[in-house]
């Protein structure tokens, strides 16, 4: 084959492949643009004032609005008693969100020149930014202590660009009174079954606060997950039991709902929600039989929990009794990262 022919073949192929590549990008761009337009039959959303301690004293459910339209991904609220009602959008975009005691934590994406980055923004009750912190990876969990002083978040990190599939987590705890940040729980002293444990493969995620000093979280090391109880003053964590992920402490502080890895399930969806009684250490499966990959949120009465499952617009919120009875039912569509405020 002559050089001329080779070049001709290459140029022809380049033209065809460039056309395919361009078409695929345009198609994806068009699809992305559609999500910015409201969907017929979708939940009603209007811009408005959102506060983490509503003036009327009425309890509200705050969440990330996933409904298509101009307010997609914004932090929004509905009255806690009518979750299907009209949504009030705040204008603040969050990937993950939580609030308690008048403090909000919003994990959001920041557009950059050569790559998108993420940051954690601490919000006051009027959703004004107090401080923000750069994040090392993709946000996954966020929590605030009941009185609003302590904040925790977890991100996914994939550090080595050549490994590609090797993930780890990073969990940080922030004191909003002193603004002291503990950037990585992995630097805490770990007592595993009473003995000091250090390893390069430790990962923490899913903090839930008991008070401003004590918290529960998941520690993964050596291929298994552990429930740990931690102390933000002494910087220690102790393992309590295995196979507990994303614990969420009840308002009374006596029970944890968590996701448990169950044998014989698909590796994509291996979890079931369980409740653990911290006095008897007895665990009971909840009535939700689907695999839930979320850190649940308790309703104020301590009887039911709320969590997200995949839905038509990314995620829907579901609710189920926290004692193993009853059945799961959909609370609202197109929503993620719930928090009861006010």
């Amino acid at each position: 084959m002559t050089t001329r022919n080779r070049v001709l073949i290459l140029l022809t192929a380049l033209a065809v492949l460039a056309a395919v590549a361009t078409a695929s990008v345009l198609h994806a761009a068009d699809r992305a643009a559609r999500k910015d337009r409201p969907q017929a039959g979708g939940p009603a959303v209007a811009a408005g004032t959102v506060a983490l301690t509503p003036a009327s004293g009425e309890r509200k459910l705050a969440f990330r609005n996933m409904a298509w339209g101009p307010h997609r991904d914004e932090l929004a609220t509905v009255p806690a008693t009518t979750p299907g009602g009209k949504r009030t959008a705040s204008g603040v975009k969050c990937l993950r969100f939580y609030a308690a005691g008048g403090t909000g934590i919003c994990l959001q994406a920041v557009r950059g020149a050569v790559q998108d980055t993420y940051r954690a923004v601490v919000l006051d009750a009027g959703l004004h930014e107090l401080r923000h912190y750069a994040l090392a990876g993709i946000p996954t969990r966020a929590r605030v202590s009941p009185d609003g002083r302590m904040v925790a978040w977890t991100v996914f990190v994939s550090g080595d660009s050549y490994a590609g599939t090797n993930f780890s987590t990073r969990t940080s705890i922030l004191d909003t009174r002193t603004w002291r940040l503990q950037p990585n729980l992995e630097s805490f002293h770990i007592l595993k079954q009473g003995r000091t444990h250090h390893a390069s493969d430790t990962n923490f995620w899913g903090v839930t606060f008991a008070d401003d000093t004590h918290f529960y979280a998941t520690l993964a090391t050596g291929g298994s997950t552990h429930l740990v109880r931690g102390d933000t003053v002494t910087h220690t964590v102790r393992t309590l039991r295995t196979n507990v992920e994303c614990p969420s402490l009840s308002p009374a502080g006596d029970r944890l709902v968590f996701k448990k890895r169950v044998q014989g399930r698909s590796p994509d969806a291996p979890w079931r929600l369980y409740v653990l009684d911290l006095r008897t250490m007895r665990e009971t499966p909840l009535a939700e039989t689907r695999s839930v990959d979320d850190q649940v949120v308790w309703q104020a009465d301590g009887r039911t929990v709320v969590y997200a499952l995949p839905g038509d617009y990314g995620a829907d919120l579901w609710t189920v009794p926290a004692d193993g009875t009853g059945h799961a039912r959909r609370l609202m569509t197109a929503a993620l990262a719930p928090a009861y405020v006010g």
Binding site: A13, A21, S24, V25, R31
Partner: peptide, 27 residues
């Protein structure tokens, strides 16, 4: 990054373009 900037969540576009680029390499 440039593709995702043009098309938010356009992972399918990234994979398709990646294939086209790889095909040029083989060629």
């Amino acid at each position: 990054f440039l593709i995702l900037r043009q098309a938010a969540e356009g992972y399918d576009a990234v994979f398709t373009v990646s294939f086209c680029v790889a095909a040029v390499g083989v060629l």
